[in-house]
Simulated scan of single mutants.
Amino acid sequence: MMINSKKILGICVSNRKNGNSSIILNELLRPARKAGHEIEILNLGALNILPCKGCFACSNSHNCVLIDDLNMVKEKIEMADAIALASPCYYLSAPSTLKAIMDRSASWAISKTANSSKKKYGAAVSVAGGAPIEFSLQRIFTSLFLGLYNCEITGQLTIGHAFNKGEVLLAPSKLKLVSELGENLCRSIEEDCCIKSAMNECEDKLVCPHCLSDVFQIYQDGRLICPVCGGELKHTNENDTTVGFNRFSAPGALEHNAHIVNNVIGGMLAGDEISQRLETYWKSGVLPKEDYQIDLDLTGVKDSLNWDNEALDALKATIPPAFEEIIKKVITKKALQNGETRINKETALRYLPKF
């Protein structure tokens, strides 16, 4: 093993053993093996990954309540210095397993990003059976996967017209490009600097300079916004640059967390109204007549009521530290609205968010 070797996690998304994705991953990792870096391969197709059930329990603990192989995947991602991702394209985009992992670990991953000063590096290569119009959403999900797990993306490539098992071997020129992406990834981790590849499977297509996604949302005022990293694409005569919001930065992660907290606050403050409307709706099937405006004003609430020690312990045991103060204000406001004069453990548990 080389001195200062890095840990590179190779992820194969395909369930097809020794198929195109496995070949691509092998070529993507070839330079890293040659350089003596530590390589580990993770075959997602061989794992048990359940779909997210939308319970939001992970918003509190950053852990999913479902029992399968997800925690093992998270551990390997956390230990890695870089991720090399190889994915097939199914219907226009990557397999659903990739999305399930992101859905169920997003809270954990965003918290890691918000509290980390160290970046990983990542590269993704995909394989598809047709032309670019048939893999039009592929790079969105591979960019999102790498970005979510705190990777600066050094390169992306999709190889088309390789439908059958092993068919990618008919295009060794494309596989040499894959090895070039692997060399770029190696240089990035060795120099601890994101060295982006200029490689693009379609030179006429705009690509986000930050996350390398190739799909944009066009706003009525003409702005081009990357739906993956959230940055705005400014097209100049010399090059393309992304400016503004970056979902994968620490500030971006904090902003995302703040958005989640605001949703939790709204749900807590309107909890009684939501419960009443839910019960009425499912009994009668009739929609409510009027919209309900949630009062989110927490001004002056913080020290309005005294909390006993057991109540504070219950709060700390349930709510992530970054959210404790804001949730404490919400519980206090709810208690005031219901005529409470102090907050004990029973009161705190009654008003704590339930997912």
Rank of each mutant, 00 (worst) to 15 (best):
E183S: 12
G129N: 04
L296P: 00
L98F: 02
G147L: 01
S126E: 09
A128N: 01
A114K: 02
A94E: 02
T142V: 13
I327M: 00
K333I: 05
N164T: 14
S173T: 12
L336I: 04
C58S: 09
D291I: 10
W108G: 00
R139W: 03
E190S: 07
C52S: 03
L181C: 14
N262V: 03
S87C: 08
A86G: 04
G147T: 07
K289W: 11
S107G: 08
A32M: 01
K196A: 06
G166W: 02
K316R: 15
M72W: 13
D313T: 07
G45Q: 03
E279Y: 15
H161Y: 15
I140L: 07
P51G: 12
G182N: 11
G10E: 01
L278Q: 13
A311G: 10
G130F: 13
K53D: 07
V125G: 01
H62K: 10
A311E: 03
G271P: 03
L287T: 06
L9W: 04
C64L: 03
V207F: 10
L47H: 10
C12F: 02
M268P: 04
V127A: 11
K165A: 05
E190K: 00
D81F: 06
P288F: 13
V264R: 01
Q337H: 09
K99Q: 09
V13L: 09
A84K: 04
C55R: 01
L29G: 05
W282H: 10
C12N: 15
K316H: 11
G19D: 12
L312A: 09
F163V: 15
G300S: 05
S105V: 02
N306L: 12
T154W: 06
T332Y: 02
M79I: 12
R139H: 02
S105L: 06
M268G: 02
I3N: 11
